[in-house]
Simulated assay, not measured.
Amino acid sequence: MINFNGTIQDNNSVLNSNNRGFAYGDSLFETIKTSYGKILFWEDHYFRLMASMRILRMEIPMHFNMEFLEAEIKNTLEVNGLTDASARVKITVFRNEGGLYLPETNDISFIIDTKPLEDDFYLISNDPYEVDLFKDYYISPSLLSTLKTNNKVLNVVGSIYAKENNLQNCLTLNTNKNVVEALNGNVFVVKGNVIKTAPLSDGCLKGIMRKQLIEIINAIPEYELIEESISAFELQKSDEIFISNTITGIQPVSKYRKKSFTSTISKLLIQKLNVKMRLS
């Protein structure tokens, strides 16, 4: 069961061909992890969603506050029997039907759906995780490229490319040929005591987990966090590469081309992330 504008209903009775998210990608989404009914990093998710809606000139309803959406998420979890488990929650916001490229209204609707997750805490996987560059298409850096919109064709085609080449993921490049992010998360590159991640100005997603890890790393005196462009040449010179997203937390990269990597920093950060998760 899903939550459509505050009403719990069947998943098959909501979308049609006039839905602007379907027809034009006129839509935003937030993917959130919950643990036994607790919404992780909820404030960060909420404010990113509100900022993104403003950028897309969507009308934010007066009642669309943190308390309202939190209650709707918890109601959806309860209906689906997920208050005593961990879950993936997806909030999709789309402009209401009407118009072609030019909408007839800026009013919005929302859908909340949920799926169970196996892991309650963030864990480091020891399975092989090989990546390569995806160079068929490039990200054009702009404010829009930092948003979680429904325009994810590059990520879809890149994921197909990864599967065809027996890769677990790919790293994307922007039009300046800098490494921007992975297909499903932000990228961090470690060399010595310096941990680097791409700046938002390079076009990477304004990731919620990226934000948490930046705060964690900045609190560790032994390491220096730098938001700076990453060249493809740096990847093979690095000691460690890891990918971050809200659901997985941290995914260490074990291999890029002929180079294998350690996961020392990933294991350190995952411990601190789980502590932060419990306190959030």
Score class of each variant (00 low, 15 high):
residue 7 T to Y: 15
residue 7 T to V: 12
residue 8 I to Y: 01
residue 11 N to I: 14
residue 13 S to L: 06
residue 13 S to D: 12
residue 14 V to L: 06
residue 20 R to L: 01
residue 21 G to F: 04
residue 21 G to V: 01
residue 21 G to S: 05
residue 22 F to V: 03
residue 37 G to C: 01
residue 38 K to R: 12
residue 43 E to P: 00
residue 45 H to I: 07
residue 50 M to C: 06
residue 50 M to N: 05
residue 52 S to D: 09
residue 52 S to V: 01
residue 59 E to Y: 13
residue 60 I to T: 07
residue 67 E to D: 15
residue 76 T to E: 05
residue 78 E to F: 15
residue 84 D to Q: 13
residue 85 A to N: 15
residue 89 V to T: 09
residue 90 K to I: 14
residue 91 I to R: 01
residue 94 F to G: 01
residue 95 R to S: 05
residue 96 N to Y: 11
residue 97 E to D: 06
residue 98 G to T: 00
residue 104 E to G: 14
residue 105 T to V: 00
residue 106 N to E: 12
residue 128 P to S: 09
residue 129 Y to H: 01
residue 132 D to G: 07
residue 134 F to D: 04
residue 134 F to G: 02
residue 137 Y to K: 12
residue 137 Y to I: 08
residue 140 S to C: 12
residue 140 S to Y: 14
residue 146 T to C: 14
residue 149 T to W: 07
residue 157 V to P: 01
residue 158 G to M: 07
residue 159 S to F: 08
residue 167 L to V: 00
residue 170 C to I: 00
residue 171 L to W: 10
residue 173 L to H: 02
residue 177 K to Q: 10
residue 182 A to Q: 00
residue 183 L to G: 07
residue 183 L to N: 00
residue 183 L to V: 02
residue 193 N to A: 14
residue 193 N to E: 11
residue 195 I to V: 06
residue 198 A to T: 14
residue 199 P to E: 11
residue 201 S to N: 10
residue 202 D to L: 11
residue 209 M to T: 14
residue 212 Q to G: 07
residue 215 E to L: 15
residue 218 N to I: 10
residue 219 A to I: 10
residue 219 A to Y: 13
residue 222 E to C: 03
residue 222 E to Q: 08
residue 228 E to Q: 13
residue 233 F to C: 12
residue 235 L to P: 02
residue 235 L to E: 03
residue 238 S to H: 02
residue 238 S to V: 11
residue 240 E to H: 13
residue 241 I to W: 04
residue 244 S to M: 09
residue 248 T to R: 11
residue 249 G to L: 03
residue 249 G to C: 07
residue 251 Q to M: 08
residue 254 S to M: 00
residue 279 L to M: 13
residue 280 S to P: 03
residue 280 S to T: 03
